[in-house]
Computed example of a mutant assay.
Amino acid sequence: MPDQDHRYSDAEIEALWRTMRERRDMRHFLPPTLAKPLPDGLIERLVLAAHLAPSVGFMQPWRFIRVCDPALRESMHAQVDAERQKTAAALPSRNDEFLKVKIEGIRDCAELLVVTLMAEREKHIIGRRTLPEMDVASVGCAIQNMWLAARAEGVGLGWVSFFEPQALGELLGLPEGAHPLGILCIGHVPAFYPRPMFEDTGWGKRLDLTQILFENRWPESAQPTPTAY
């Protein structure tokens, strides 16, 4: 019989689990003047990690823009800060507390990428006829790959979603149909957070498995997910 033991070694499995446990959405970065240079080829490796992600119908909907222009970085920061203020104003409570939470590291990080959905993605039907949002799910898988690869290399990555997509798209000259999903801040960090930052600052906690794993049907006893505001 053919060898059916496709299992990785215990050390390899533990390394994978460690990377998942210690992955963090980073907002605090060492400015380039205080940090050593990023490893050679890191950005290309992170984009390759993203490109290895699964995608529905093999559509590969991810596109990346590497932002190297300091003026463009400042304009993006202004858009994000404007949305931060609007988010705080929309919170029914804790708005002042929210404003004290750092949500991005656009000015400090060594590298800045914008991840967008491709243009003309509506032409891809396989797996999307009834669930067109699966292109967004595919990009989420790509970013998770980047997060894990960055953490394994000791580099922080933060996903910023505080922006108005149309305004950011116009700033970056995106073609019609392309849609920005995230600003990715990448760089060395003072330390990785011991827990997710929003958990550490009292905005929520990781749910117990009993709250997210059901059998056969949605139970009547299931409790609604607590909100962070």
Rank of each mutant, 00 (worst) to 15 (best):
D3Y: 07
D5I: 05
Y8Q: 08
D10Q: 13
E12C: 09
E14P: 15
A15G: 10
L16K: 08
W17I: 05
R18T: 14
R21T: 08
E22W: 00
E22D: 04
M26K: 00
H28Q: 15
F29T: 01
L30D: 04
L34Q: 14
L38H: 09
L38K: 08
E44P: 07
E44N: 12
V47C: 05
L48P: 04
A49K: 00
A49D: 00
H51P: 02
L52C: 14
S55F: 05
V56G: 03
V56T: 09
F58P: 00
Q60T: 02
R63I: 02
R66I: 11
V67M: 04
D69H: 04
S75F: 03
H77F: 15
A78E: 14
A78S: 14
V80A: 01
D81I: 11
E83F: 13
A88G: 15
A88H: 15
A88R: 15
A90G: 12
P92C: 01
P92Q: 00
S93V: 06
R94S: 10
D96S: 14
D96R: 14
E97T: 05
K102L: 12
K102I: 12
G105K: 06
I106Y: 10
A110R: 06
E111M: 07
V114Q: 10
E120G: 11
E120P: 03
E120A: 11
R121Q: 06
E122P: 07
E122R: 11
H124C: 06
H124A: 09
E133D: 09
E133Y: 11
M134H: 13
D135F: 00
C141K: 02
A142W: 05
Q144L: 08
N145D: 05
A150Y: 05
R151K: 13
A152D: 13
G154R: 03
G156T: 02
G158E: 07
W159P: 09
E164A: 04
Q166G: 14
L168F: 09
L168S: 09
L172V: 04
G173T: 07
L174Y: 08
G177D: 05
G177M: 04
A178I: 01
G182I: 00
G182F: 00
I186L: 05
G187S: 02
V189Q: 03
V189K: 03
A191C: 14
P194A: 09
P194H: 08
P194T: 06
R195V: 12
M197V: 08
E199R: 06
E199M: 07
L207W: 06
F214C: 12
W218M: 12
E220K: 13
E220M: 13
E220W: 12
P224C: 06
P224F: 07
T225N: 11
T227M: 12
